[in-house]
Design a protein around this nucleic acid. Structure first.
Ligand code: FES
Ligand code: FES
Lengths: 145, 145
DNA sequence: ACATTAAAGGACAAGAATATCTTTTATTAT
DNA sequence: ATAATAAAAGATATTCTTGTCCTTTAATGT
């Protein structure tokens, strides 16, 4: 098992793709994005519809339409995407699936896992959607397989 | 999404349950285990069959039969269970689902994620199945919801 | 030997995640 | 106004995960 669902992996890659194109004032169509991140086009369309409804990305229909990200949204954390798609189990859930993670009745992995989980939170809560724009434009980071 | 599959959560909880009972020389039946870790009995039976085939736990049929763990196996790492059930994507896979995690064509989260992934590996590779036996016997750790 | 017990094995069912297809709605350019 | 474009929406298909049921096999005690 990976750390994110496949849907969430597509979502993050797509949002980062849109973000760096969007920083240039360009809107991008679903075909472009799907090709850019190597994902099934029609499935990705569903995911982006959802992110659009949730206000993480924006879109316009019609000619020259497409997806884009408000400048203000570039400073939103990656965790917003994760939470929208996978929920917050990764941030607050018990590693071993107990109903709730608790200090009082901890599971065997609790102490060590909590430290790791805090770092995952830290990574996702403090890294913004726009953080990689330069490196993405420079081609130093990959979004496709 | 949680960090382990539900199947893997059941597997780890069950193995730890068997381990601490087993340290007392007791074998435990599937009913006992399922009640002890709060899991669907028949599904758990399938999971334990699999772990038994893979040599992580042992079993005997018939009266006074049940599951147990060889003393030697108590020193096996938890990662053996995870790998048997969820594979090794968590240890070696790319956070964003790229075909392979690479230093040369890293995904945006690579640098930071690698550090976290290394800690997950460290936790699971160095923590043994038997490590929690005392605390489990003392009732200081929980395995059920 | 025989009956009883408990896991192993195979088949099936329900649900969720992933993926595709078709129609509708909004926007733009002519 | 009209035609063309592109996302939204709704419906359906496929695959994987999770869960259950039923029969078989192996071990034990009498
Ligand atoms: S109780 Fe399991 S991680 Fe906290
Ligand atoms: S390339 Fe994505 S985690 Fe290494």
């Amino acid at each position: 098992m990976a750390i994110f669902s496949k849907t969430c992996e597509y979502a993050i890659r797509a949002v980062l793709y849109i973000a760096h194109k969007s920083a240039l004032g360009k809107r991008v169509g679903i075909k472009d994005i799907a090709a850019g991140i190597d994902s099934p086009e029609l499935y990705l369309a569903k995911i982006l519809q959802d992110l659009s409804r949730k206000g993480i990305i924006s879109s316009v229909k019609g000619p020259n339409g497409g997806f884009y990200i408000e400048n203000g949204s570039l400073s939103k954390p990656i965790s917003d995407i994760v939470e929208a798609v996978d929920g917050n189990a990764l941030f607050y859930g018990c590693a071993l699936g107990l109903k709730q993670c608790s200090e009082i009745q901890p599971c065997p992995l609790h102490d060590q896992f909590k430290a790791i989980r805090d770092q995952i939170k830290d990574l996702l809560f403090t890294t913004t959607i726009g953080a990689f724009n330069q490196e993405l434009l420079a081609g130093m980071l990959a979004l496709k397989k």
